[in-house]
């Protein structure tokens, strides 16, 4: 599995499609931290809300980095769709974790207010939950689940917006709400964390099941 992830990473880095989601998210982070971002914990709400769609986008980029024919070669070399799709999910999770870590340490470095370690850890956990949810949704929006670019983009946009439409429901809305109130964050993070992991596993299983049927 480690070679599979390394192969995918090398391929993603050689292409340049990973840059737009990272640049857009970097710009959003810069915007949030240009002035006073507000009280430490609630300052993370904005970067959490934007990490979710950025993670969806980045995951779609990773899942579709290989064209379908080269993907077929990789699937056979890996010994089946299951391992190949698990590698996509794993690499996406690693990438999003790195982005979440960066987004968690930027405010304590540039904001004038003091950021206790506990607040940074909670902020990182909230970013991670939102990012991993994005990975789960991204896997569902990419090949082999959705094979056409147009539908993929439309579905990703619709699911990104849908997470904010229903108020404070897991896995995104409740975390953003708890960050804003600076209250009840830990129990909400646990609920959303479980949701994110279930979504990750379910979306990977869906993609490995649909891969050989669509082919």
């Amino acid at each position: 599995m480690s070679y599979l992830v390394r192969y995918l990473l090398a391929d993603v880095l050689r292409g340049q499609r990973f840059l737009p989601p990272l640049l857009v998210y970097g710009a959003v982070l810069a915007m949030f931290n240009a002035g006073d971002a507000g009280p430490p914990l609630s300052a993370y709400a904005g970067s959490c809300a934007f990490l979710y769609p950025a993670a969806v986008w980045l995951t779609v980029v990773i899942a579709t980095s290989e064209d379908p024919v080269r993907r077929a070669v990789t699937v056979v070399a890996a010994g089946g769709w299951g391992r190949a799709q698990a590698a996509v999910t794993l690499l996406s999770c690693l990438a999003v974790t790195a982005v979440a870590l960066a987004a968690a340490v930027v405010p304590p470095l540039v904001q004038p207010r003091p950021y206790p370690v506990a607040v940074v850890v909670l902020g990182f956990a909230a970013l991670l939950v939102c990012g991993l949810t994005g990975v789960g949704v991204g896997v569902l929006c990419a090949r082999p689940v959705i094979t056409r670019h147009g539908w993929s983009a439309l579905t990703a946009a619709a699911l990104a917006v849908a997470a904010f439409l229903f108020g404070q429901v897991p896995p995104i809305g409740n975390v953003l709400g708890a960050l804003g109130r600076e209250h009840d964050l830990v129990p909400n993070l646990v609920v959303s964390g479980v949701c994110a992991v279930v979504l990750l596993v379910a979306s990977t299983v869906v993609s490995r099941t649909l891969g050989p049927r669509r082919d």
């Binding site: 024919v69 080269r70 077929a72 070669v73 056979v76 070399a77 010994g79």
Partner: peptide
Amino acid sequence: RSVGYLPERFP
């Protein structure tokens, strides 16, 4: 277990 696949047209 170990299968090698050559597609009709490599990209």
